[in-house]
């Protein structure tokens, strides 16, 4: 394999980067028009490599949700360009957004149905996904019969059913208690390692970001701007209460507060 390489100039080799799952090029989003237009996102640029787990943190009003909407294709940027690899990304919300008129398995089957899979193929895939999130016993239940944590696991299974390369998560565990959150962090981490998925995880919880992310992007508020970027080189599986995670979270939080003060 390397035998063919010497003929290639180095300059061409060096930019051979890992495949990109998501790229934002100077993306700006203004809400409203004319004088009272609000800039939600200001010339934001970053790249997420395939298979990477990137967390985005920022105070409220930093345009996190706006950014996810743009990436998910639910909205179009006012300027700049969003490039997403593969099919439409999957998106998970803070609320489970499960369809209350469908059972757990029907909810998970929904994206498969939209993709036109046969009933038989759907059934098999759904069973597999429910096993993955340890909810196979609850296939026939309705969402209202589940606890908050279980609902989010169903929502995760449903998002995974889309088989998107990119999974977007909008504060998915913010409404859960700490114990359940810990639990789901581990499940998500394991699933991510198993599937090779690319994850963009938005949160306002810095510790959560350090617990999960390969990289943490820090956004400022009003307008949302990318102000810093941290590489998290801690071994996995991590624990949210470990001193390393706490130390790094503290650095990022300090930076966040500094940015907030500077803005005020």
């Amino acid at each position: 394999m390397s035998a063919a390489l010497p003929h290639v100039p180095l300059s061409l080799l060096s930019p051979s980067p890992a495949p990109v799952a998501l790229r934002l090029d100077g993306v700006t989003k203004r809400h409203g028009a004319g004088g009272d237009a609000v800039v939600a996102l200001d010339t934001m640029s970053f790249t997420v490599k395939k298979g990477e787990f990137v967390c985005v943190v920022g105070a409220s009003g930093c345009g996190k949700s706006t950014m996810l909407n743009l990436v998910a294709g639910l909205d179009t940027p006012s300027a700049g360009k969003v490039t997403v690899a593969g099919e439409r990304p999957a998106l998970m919300f803070q609320e489970s957004a499960l369809f209350p008129w469908l059972s757990v398995e029907e909810n998970v089957a929904f994206p498969l149905q939209m993709q036109g899979l046969s009933r038989k193929a759907r059934t098999e895939r759904v069973a597999e996904l429910l096993r993955l999130v340890h909810l196979e016993k609850f296939a026939r239940r309705r969402p209202h019969e589940l606890s908050g944590g279980m609902k989010q696991r169903v929502a995760l299974a449903r998002a995974l059913a889309q088989q998107a390369e990119l999974l977007l998560m909008d504060e998915p565990f913010a409404a859960l208690d700490a114990m359940m959150r810990d639990h789901l962090h581990s499940e998500l981490e394991a699933l991510w390692q198993k599937t090779g998925l690319t994850v963009v995880f938005v949160t306002h919880n810095v510790r959560e970001a350090v617990r999960l992310g390969d990289r943490v992007l820090l956004l400022s508020s009003r307008p949302g701007r990318l102000v810093a970027e941290y590489q998290v080189d801690l071994d996995r599986p991590r624990r949210i209460e470990s001193p390393e995670v706490a130390r790094m979270a503290r650095t990022i939080t300090d930076h966040l507060l500094e940015a907030a003060r500077a803005a005020a």
């Binding site: 990304p89 957004a97 369809f99 994206p111 939209m114 449903r158």
Partner: peptide, 21 residues
């Protein structure tokens, strides 16, 4: 609106969005 968003993200558009969501 959240359910509509969820439906759209999963590929339900136009008539399918009406029928299924």
């Amino acid at each position: 609106p959240l359910l509509v968003r969820a439906g759209k993200v999963m590929g339900a558009r136009g008539f399918a969005l009406y029928r299924h969501i």
